[in-house]
C-alpha cells in the first residue's frame, strides 16, 4: 500500500462526524468510521480511536446526542444523531471549510496569482 493517506488536520474530525450524521440516520461510532473511510475512499488516515473523544466532546457541546440501541447484528451500541445546534454547525462548518479550502488551494496553485 503506497501511503498517500493524509493525516487529519485538527478540527476536521468534528466536521466529518457532523457530515456523517447529516443524513439524519442515527449512527454508532463504528458506522461513522466506516462512513468516513467510504466517502473519502481511504484518502484520509483516520486513527479510529480519535473519533470517540470527539464524539464525547461534541455531545457535551450539545452538537450531537447519544442513545443506546441495538446494532444491525443485534449488539448493544451507542447511536449518535445531530441536534439542531449540530445541524447549524454542520452547514456553517461546511461553508467555512469550502472558503478555507479554496483560499488555501488558490494560494498553493496560483503562486503569482496576482492577475
Amino acid at each position: 500500500m503506497t501511503e498517500t493517506n493524509l493525516a487529519l488536520l485538527k478540527g476536521t474530525v468534528d466536521l466529518l462526524v457532523l457530515a456523517a450524521l447529516d443524513a439524519g440516520e442515527p449512527l454508532h461510532g463504528y458506522a461513522i468510521a466506516q462512513w468516513i473511510g467510504r466517502v473519502t475512499g481511504g484518502a484520509l488516515l483516520l486513527e479510529e480511536g480519535t473519533l470517540y473523544p470527539a464524539l464525547h466532546r461534541m455531545r457535551r457541546q450539545g452538537l450531537i446526542s447519544a442513545e443506546w440501541g441495538v446494532s444491525e447484528n443485534n449488539r448493544r451500541a451507542r447511536f449518535y444523531r445531530l441536534t439542531a445546534a449540530g445541524r447549524e454547525r454542520r452547514s456553517q462548518g461546511a461553508s467555512d471549510w469550502a472558503r478555507y479550502a479554496s483560499a488555501v488551494s488558490a494560494a498553493l496553485q496560483g503562486g503569482g496569482a496576482g492577475e
Binding site: H28, G29, Y30, E48, Y52, N73, A77
Partner: peptide, 25 residues
C-alpha cells in the same frame, strides 16, 4: 444536564469493544 451527565467508564469500554469487534468481524 450535559454537566451532570457523567461518561461512565463501562459505557466507554462497551463502545470501544463494540467498535473493535465489528472491525474484526
Amino acid at each position: 444536564p450535559r454537566l451532570t451527565e457523567e461518561e461512565s467508564p463501562e459505557d466507554l469500554d462497551a463502545e470501544i469493544r463494540f467498535h473493535l469487534e465489528e472491525r474484526v468481524r
